[in-house]
Amino acid sequence: MRPGAGAVAGVVVVVAALSGGLVAPHDPAAVVGTPFSVPGGAFPLGTDGLGRDVLSRVLAGGARLVLLALAGGAAATAAGVVVGLLAGWVGGVTDRLLTAALDLLAALPLLLVALVLAVAVPGGAAVVVAAVAGGAPLTARVVRDAASRFRGSGWVEAARGRGESTGAVLVRELAPALGPLVAADAALRFVLGLQLACTVALLGFGPQPPSPDWALMLRENLPGAALNPAGVAAPAAALVLLACGVAWSALSRRGVAG
């Protein structure tokens, strides 16, 4: 497999999820047919319990989840990289204090944290906060270990041996070497954000009906699953594709990084 193939697959599923709403044949919130009609005719995936087009709702129902997962994943990665670099590159007491603090944060059950926070703030904000609290420590640990290993590596010493400044060592040497590692890790943080966003949405603390949302659709269409299984199977397949596609890109990137 080409090294970039996984990353391309990851980007493709994310972009598809974000832009699917643009090609939806019907208004995702409009009642256009009889409830729970089976796939066929004007409705390739049938309709849901209110008679809305399942295909249109699936096409439009990923954008919010993906944006939320991107926000949570990006914030967790950014925070983790900053803290991990600080701990791994500076070392010593800074390292020990930061590592201890991260251990505490990582020990929190993040789903419970997200739910408890959802009582006070909107569900989306709770997801992002929990994704950062739960994800940043994992990223920080990966970055810390790599940075402290790289700090004593031959190529950093070689950079010193040709008089590179500390800034140049960080920007020219360390950042590109960490790149693949951080990219793979960011994909896993995205998956974590997606899982949290799904759970919070399915429990009803995210988008409210009639907005289309894959997680919400799972719950809405489950009672009529025997009448139109596609109502559940389609959003489930979309979520599996998205989560596994991104996770797979992380695995293949990690393979390159060694």
């Binding site: 997606l194 899982q195 699953a225 559940v232 489930a236 989560a243 596994c244």
Partner: peptide, 21 residues
């Protein structure tokens, strides 16, 4: 990859297959 699948999907698929179908 399996661990990446959101739990909501696992729940829905289990219900769809074992209870619904």
């Amino acid at each position: 990859a399996l661990a990446a699948v959101p739990q909501a999907v696992v729940v829905a698929v289990l219900v769809l297959v074992l209870a619904g179908l």
